[in-house]
Simulated scan of single mutants.
Amino acid sequence: MTVLLVALGAALGAPTRYLTDRWLQSTHGTGFPWGTFSVNVVASFVLGLVLGGPAPHAAVLAVGVGFCGSLSTWSTLAYETVRLADERARTASVMNVLVSTLAGLGAAGLGLALGAMLWA
């Protein structure tokens, strides 16, 4: 049952990540990876929300592990950061790492606080 719950969440998270990334990149038309930034921050918030209180174990598996795990893509963050640096967009490269990390941590913290209120 555990694997099924994780797989179900992942089956929703991965296409959500792909479609969101494509949509945001085509909308903004800049070299900055807005799609990756957005899905990582959202996944951090949702994971915090789920883990903020005594969520049902099935929700942690499906949403926390499956959905958030496949929605977030920190390996793509690393790739896009290196790509920006290679393209001599050094400021954007540094900002990508700093802002993504700080926004992700902030979103997770906000999710934890809100989750604690909701699950209480």
Rank of each mutant, 00 (worst) to 15 (best):
M1Y: 12
T2L: 07
V3H: 11
L4N: 11
L5F: 09
L5M: 14
V6S: 03
L8D: 06
A10C: 03
A11V: 08
A11K: 01
L12I: 11
L12V: 10
L12H: 06
P15D: 02
Y18F: 15
Y18P: 09
L19D: 04
T20D: 03
R22V: 15
W23Y: 12
L24R: 05
T27R: 15
T27E: 10
T27N: 14
H28T: 14
G29L: 13
T30C: 10
T30E: 05
G31K: 02
F32L: 09
F32W: 15
G35Q: 12
T36C: 05
F37N: 05
S38F: 10
V39E: 11
N40C: 13
V42L: 13
S44E: 00
S44F: 00
V46Q: 01
V46A: 06
G48M: 04
G48I: 00
L49D: 02
V50A: 02
V50L: 07
L51P: 01
G52N: 00
G52C: 01
G53Q: 03
P54C: 05
H57K: 14
A59H: 03
L61Q: 03
L61H: 05
G64T: 04
V65L: 07
C68L: 12
C68G: 08
C68T: 06
C68D: 07
C68S: 10
S70Y: 01
L71R: 00
W74E: 07
W74F: 15
Y79F: 14
V82M: 15
R83W: 08
E87C: 14
A89D: 08
A89T: 00
R90K: 10
S93E: 09
V94F: 14
V94G: 11
V94S: 04
N96Q: 01
N96H: 11
L98V: 13
V99C: 06
V99A: 07
V99R: 02
S100M: 03
S100I: 03
T101R: 01
A103F: 07
A103Q: 02
G104L: 01
A107Q: 03
A108V: 05
G109L: 12
L110Y: 04
A116D: 13
M117C: 13
L118G: 15
W119Y: 09
A120I: 05
